[in-house]
Nucleic acid binder design. Structure first.
Length: 177
DNA sequence: GGTAAGATCAGC
DNA sequence: CTGATCTTACCA
């Protein structure tokens, strides 16, 4: 399972916005809660593509969410980025999120971090491992925690009990404890 | 062509 | 706890 390996990696936009990934959830194709459960559709097709690309989807009529595709071509699996610790570019994040937001409120939720980084549908499918991409995931040397907290995922109506959510112990930037 | 539900968030 | 808001996917 690669999901917890994304913890402590950096989510970087090439305009200077940088956040550290502190919370993730995993979705595999055999999981009824995953968008890929019933096979490829127009929306989820990038999750059936190459690993390391970004799957961006729109939900609840107003929110975008970012995922890292995790399995090889033909297998629909990914990791939802649920929260970041904002490190750089807090001003443009606040411009996107609304003034008056505390540091903690900028990226402590999947819809919030997408908004903070101005990620929308156009970003679907970009290669997060290609240094020339607008958005990448990279390491600054800080390894993933060896004692990540595991819990149930959030906001689901099926597969409610699977332990597929991980977050950095002690981080005050997770969406929920 | 109609519709129910949704990997959420902000405000009361 | 509830309302907002609208796309997607499934069914007829």
């Amino acid at each position: 399972m690669v999901a917890p390996q994304l913890l402590n990696k950096l989510f970087i936009r090439n305009d200077g916005r940088v956040g550290r990934i502190v919370e993730v959830e995993a979705y595999t194709q055999d999981d009824p809660a995953a968008h890929t459960f019933r096979g490829p559709t127009k929306r989820n097709r990038t999750m059936f593509g190459r690993a390391g690309h970004m799957y961006v989807y729109f939900t609840y009529g107003m929110h975008w969410c970012c995922n890292a595709v995790c399995e090889g071509e033909g297998i629909g699996a990914g990791v939802l980025l649920r929260a970041l610790e904002p490190l750089e570019g807090l001003a443009p994040m606040r411009d996107a999120r609304g003034q008056g937001k505390s540091d903690r409120e900028l990226c402590n939720g999947p819809g919030k971090l997408a908004q903070a980084f101005s990620v929308k549908g156009e970003a679907d499918g970009i290669d997060l491992c290609d240094p020339s991409s607008r958005i990448v995931i990279a390491s600054d040397g800080l390894p993933a925690p060896d004692d990540p907290i595991v819990s149930r995922r959030i906001g689901l109506s099926v597969s409610v009990d699977l332990p597929l959510r991980w977050y950095v112990p002690g981080s005050r930037y997770v969406s929920k404890r």
